[in-house]
Design a protein around this nucleic acid. Structure first.
Lengths: 303, 303
DNA sequence: CCATATAGCTGACTTTAGTCAGGCATGTAG
DNA sequence: CTACATGCCTGACTAAAGTCAGCTATATGG
């Protein structure tokens, strides 16, 4: 990592925590302890489950409970079991009262004011430059917050990704997608040592996946590379591919292969640009039009 | 202000306080209370006056004192009167001991690590994009932190600016600059109602100035527009000019004039681009080559 | 010299944040 | 039905953060 890059990031961190971080806190606190204000904000007019709040704010269960009681005593919040039949009666849902919604709206207002206070001193042109640069920073920060880790293919988050993957390709393939016609992939094939399933998460939420099968005496095979459209275009797919290749390479495989459908044009472009070259069909996958192969011994393969 | 712009800034604030703000705190805390760590960091190997620390960190005098005692007890810091003769013996200076410098270096190291941890997951190309966008955001945030306010011309910060202004033009004018040959400007002319002196500050530090003389029965005259080179190119000069014009306009003047030296090319370009047109000499200023005038009744004049 | 301001310090205090060990009701696997 | 896990709760506690009044020594203006 170049030291100038690191220095630039540090300068940014300093300026931004000074200007945005500190003032954000100040704007949040409205005569109310910060933790309470944050909690109120997080509950939002839509309401939220207690467990979700705990996860999002990273609070201790007891502490959160106490904060909720404080807001309840002030008449801003009600906490009650979700009143639907059949759902877990232990789970409780926090909702804003009339007064709570009013205070939430006040916080919302202040957030707007704060954002405006950053833009106001600038010229029209500078404002647009700033907003554009902010959007860019935000995109890339989000990208850098995505974590790619091995995950059992049976994990609910993994299942959710694979379902989303199937939905996506069903929508994109001309003629749709019928899993029954496709070569099946069994969970056991994606569990070490036979292979691996990698899950990409953003704040613990699944946003992408990919898998590799380590065929004995044959090239490794990459399957099910998928990225949620909320984080598409941030290089997650490329990182996923790279991590899968590294996984195979570290375990002694020198070649990876994959098949793909002609309608997945961006994916095909990505394969080509990261060193894959098209080869003759190596299987009879019903939905495949292109087959690719990459030699793992050639490139560096660093992240 | 467009609501999309405000929304974009808010999204940025959210992402950035989450990723940078929270983790920055975490990286700062090294088994030591955050406030102590921040203080240690702020003292830095260069040392700092107690009053300066109080201002920079925004701490209560008593609280700061206690924090300093804590660091002193841990053998990280010494607090002593500045040992120069003739300086205020009440003012005390905090300095790092050997151990303090070691811990400061550790914090420095962690800051580097933190910055790296943001860049590491990204591709080479994304890293450069991120750093570029960060630099842009930082520049513009700094610009938006600059405050322009009226200030008595006798204020030490105002004097410092005017001195810096004189130094700057002395360096740039071909043939140097001799104040004795220039038309003098007296303090009384820059105090309401005769005129005004505006000071631009960044975190209370002076970074620019400008003045306008409200000549009775004659166009107002802009003088001494200067911007420190640390914040040049951020549109501060333009804002200063705009504020001076507004000041004159609000008090009934419809025209402003100014004279300038041919070597100040950026300034001349700025005058031209903000509605000034060149006119015949209206004075015999020794160092002036160009005279400009602007009609304040024409444009909108909004910030 | 006096009155007054200023810089930093100390003691006494409150509030906020956060932790930990249980407790109770509900759910679930055997 | 039992045993155990889970979700949320309360009580008891600690540490950190921050506030306020008053103190001492030095500076400053008359």
């Amino acid at each position: 990592m170049g030291p100038e890059l690191v220095a630039a990031v540090r300068r940014f961190n300093r300026t931004v925590t000074q200007r945005v971080g500190a003032l954000d806190d100040e704007y949040m606190a409205s005569g109310r302890p910060l933790a309470q204000a944050r909690l109120l904000w997080e509950i939002s007019p839509a309401g939220a489950e207690v467990a979700a709040l705990r996860a999002r704010l990273g609070l201790d269960s007891g502490y959160l409970s106490r904060l909720l009681r404080a807001l309840e005593n002030d008449g801003l919040v009600t906490v009650a079991p979700a009143d639907q039949v059949g759902c877990d009666a232990r789970v409780r849902v926090a909702a804003l009262t009339e007064a709570g919604r009013a205070e939430w709206a006040a916080l919302d207002e202040r957030s707007d004011e704060f954002a405006s206070s950053i833009l106001t001193p600038l010229s029209e042109q500078s404002r647009e430059q700033l907003v554009e640069a902010m959007a860019q920073v935000e995109r890339l920060l989000v990208a850098s917050m995505v974590v790619i880790e091995p995950c059992p293919p049976g994990d609910p988050r993994a299942r959710a990704c694979v379902r989303a993957y199937a939905r996506d390709i069903a929508r994109r393939f001309d003629g749709g997608f019928d899993p029954a016609l496709s070569k099946p992939v069994h969970d056991e094939e994606l569990v070490p040592p036979a292979g691996v399933f990698l899950l990409a998460t953003l704040n613990s939420e699944p946003v992408g996946c990919g898998a590799v099968k380590l065929h004995p005496d044959a090239p490794a095979e990459i399957k099910r590379v998928w990225v949620a459209d909320t984080v598409r275009g941030l290089g997650i797919g490329r990182r996923m591919l790279c991590d899968l290749e590294r996984y195979a390479h570290e375990r002694g495989w020198t070649t990876v292969r994959l098949d793909t459908n002609r309608s997945l044009t961006e994916a095909i472009a990505m394969y080509r640009s990261t060193g894959y070259r098209e080869i003759e069909p190596y299987n009879d996958e019903h939905f495949a039009h292109h087959w690719f192969e990459k030699d793992l011994t050639a490139g560096a393969g660093a992240a």
